[in-house]
């Protein structure tokens, strides 16, 4: 009798233990609370992530604008050289310097399409060199009145100058976008997650050639 009673007691204890297990678990968080926490964490990460993505796309778009204008500039240069060649064929040194600078800049531009961050400084320098070579070409053209009077030359020169203005504004837009990106990236809470999520710092497009910094002298 007592055995059966003890057995019953054991069964009863087991049953009670089985029932008490969920009661013991009820002191920890329910599954939906964990889900809510996970969603909250996701949102906390997603909002800054989305903002960083938007800003990254902004500077990439600004970079694409620079690329478009540089392409336009590089396309105009051979036409200009061809026109000058018709009047000043013996200025070979100047003309070949322009073409060399142009092809160097074009190669770097194509490389920068794939990886703008690492090619930026070199491209800036190459564009500076091209600008200097073009400056020398314009100086040479002053010695040829017929060339100066050529309407095609004047038109190409005006187009190039207009394109250079456009490059200036595109560069400005790019620097603005990069500055905003850097400001956000280095602020709290973005600074904690930016590097982990792969948002690297981006350099500004700075003038690398001292000659370009100089204010042009205009004489009448």
């Amino acid at each position: 009798m007592s055995v059966s009673l003890s057995l019953d007691q054991a069964v009863l204890d087991q049953a009670l233990l089985a029932q008490s297990l969920p009661m013991a678990e009820s002191n920890s968080w329910p599954w939906w609370a964990w889900l809510l926490v996970a969603i909250a964490v996701l949102i906390i990460i997603a909002i800054p992530y989305n903002r960083l993505v938007r800003l990254r796309n902004d500077w990439r778009n600004a970079w694409a604008q620079i690329d478009v204008q540089l392409k336009r500039r590089h396309d105009l240069v051979p036409n200009l050289v061809a026109t000058v060649q018709g009047y000043a064929a013996h200025e070979k040194e100047t003309l070949s310097a322009v073409m060399q600078a142009r092809s160097g800049a074009e190669q770097l531009r194509q490389r920068a399409q794939a990886d703008p961050v690492s090619s930026l400084a070199a491209l800036g320098q190459a564009e500076g060199t091209l600008g200097l070579a073009l400056g020398r070409l314009y100086a040479v053209s002053e010695a040829y009145p017929e060339l100066k009077a050529d309407s095609q030359f004047a038109e190409l020169r005006a187009s190039l100058e207009h394109t250079e203005d456009r490059i200036g504004f595109a560069r400005q837009a790019y620097n603005d976008a990069v500055t905003l990106y850097a400001t956000v990236r280095e602020s709290i809470p973005y600074v904690f997650i930016a590097s982990i999520l792969g948002f690297a710092p981006i350099p500004l497009w700075q003038i690398v050639d001292d000659a370009e910094r100089q204010v042009p002298q205009v004489r009448f």
């Binding site: 778009n61 600004a62 604008q65 203005d165 456009r166 504004f169 595109a170 400005q172 837009a173 976008a177």
Partner: peptide, 12 residues
Amino acid sequence: QQVSEEMAIAAN
């Protein structure tokens, strides 16, 4: 037209 094109680039 010229200044508008320039500003369109600057304003993106």
